[in-house]
Amino acid sequence: MENILSFNNVSLRKGARTILSDISWKFRENEQWAVLGLNGSGKTSLLNVIMGYHYPSDGEVTVLGNNFGKTNLQELRKEIGFVSTSLDRFSQLTNNEKVEEIIVSGKFASFGLYENVSPMDWAKADSLLDSFRLSYLKGKLFHLLSQGEKRRVLIARSLMSDPKVLILDEPCTGLDILSREEVLHLTKEVIGKDRHLIFVTHHIEELVKEITHVLLLHEGKVVAAGPKVDVLDADLLSKTFEVPVKVRWEEERPWLTIKTPVV
């Protein structure tokens, strides 16, 4: 089975500080992964390494058959869709753009349209709006949308380039329950079709049944990595989140309960 990505003893340091330490992780075809950990556990740094924004201090990284140090990272990034609340920093560029313009810009990995857009590109944006049940938003300015609508539009945008890997970095942050469930339903729909998911979150209840594997991070180190049913263990999660927890399963989704009050 082909590896979608591979980390082999990867470490990342900034000055005297170690951000990631000896990370080994294999993500294979037909797997869909979630990454869990506290703030500061190394999740964002891990994503930055995958995207080629940070180069590892030690170890080897391979993404979609591309060995870092021997590949064009800018071209590789076109095969990776990325949705994150960190994209909010581009709000000055996006607020006064129409929804369909936001979506089309995903083909060029830009915010704002600086290249010629073909009729086929506009048609694809319309198709994504339709398949995500967002056609009613066509022509609306991005800043007029709800937070849930914005998040769904950005997921549609990430698919304009038909990425092989889709990274959803805490896509439900700041959403109410209804908007969260709409985003999670959308997540189910975009998994597969030769597309592989990395879903980053603090909350195990966001792990829909289609997610098959989980990576747990704590202080820049791997606590566990493997099939979801094995890794979502109370002891492993207690170590990851630094509080004693229990895990139960309902509607094929895991749910976490704190065993004792946190003082």
Rank of each mutant, 00 (worst) to 15 (best):
K107N: 12
I103K: 08
V117I: 14
L87M: 09
L145P: 06
L141Q: 10
S135F: 06
L87K: 01
N116I: 10
L73W: 00
D121V: 04
S118N: 14
E101T: 09
E149L: 13
S105N: 01
S84H: 02
R133A: 07
M120Q: 14
R133Y: 08
A109K: 15
T94C: 07
F108D: 07
W122P: 07
Q74N: 06
M120P: 00
I103Y: 09
N95L: 05
N95Y: 07
L73T: 00
S131V: 05
K70S: 13
F108M: 10
V99M: 02
F142H: 03
L137A: 15
N95H: 07
K78R: 15
K140E: 15
G148Y: 05
D126Q: 08
N95E: 10
N96M: 13
E115L: 08
P119D: 14
A123H: 11
E115G: 02
G148I: 09
L141E: 09
S127N: 10
F142P: 01
G106P: 01
K107Q: 14
G139I: 00
E101Q: 13
V83M: 02
M120F: 10
R89P: 00
R133F: 07
Y136Q: 13
E75N: 09
L73R: 03
A123F: 11
L141N: 09
Y114F: 15
N116H: 12
E97F: 12
G81Q: 08
D126M: 05
E100A: 03
S118F: 12
V104H: 09
L76E: 07
E79I: 05
L113E: 07
V104P: 06
S135C: 06
R89C: 05
D121A: 04
I80W: 01
N96E: 15
G106M: 07
V83Y: 02
L76I: 10
L93I: 11
G139L: 01
F108G: 02
G139N: 02
K70R: 15
R77I: 14
S146K: 01
F108P: 00
S86L: 12
S127E: 15
F90S: 02
Q92T: 10
L145Y: 08
Q147V: 02
F108V: 09
D126I: 05
F111R: 03
S118C: 11
K140V: 05
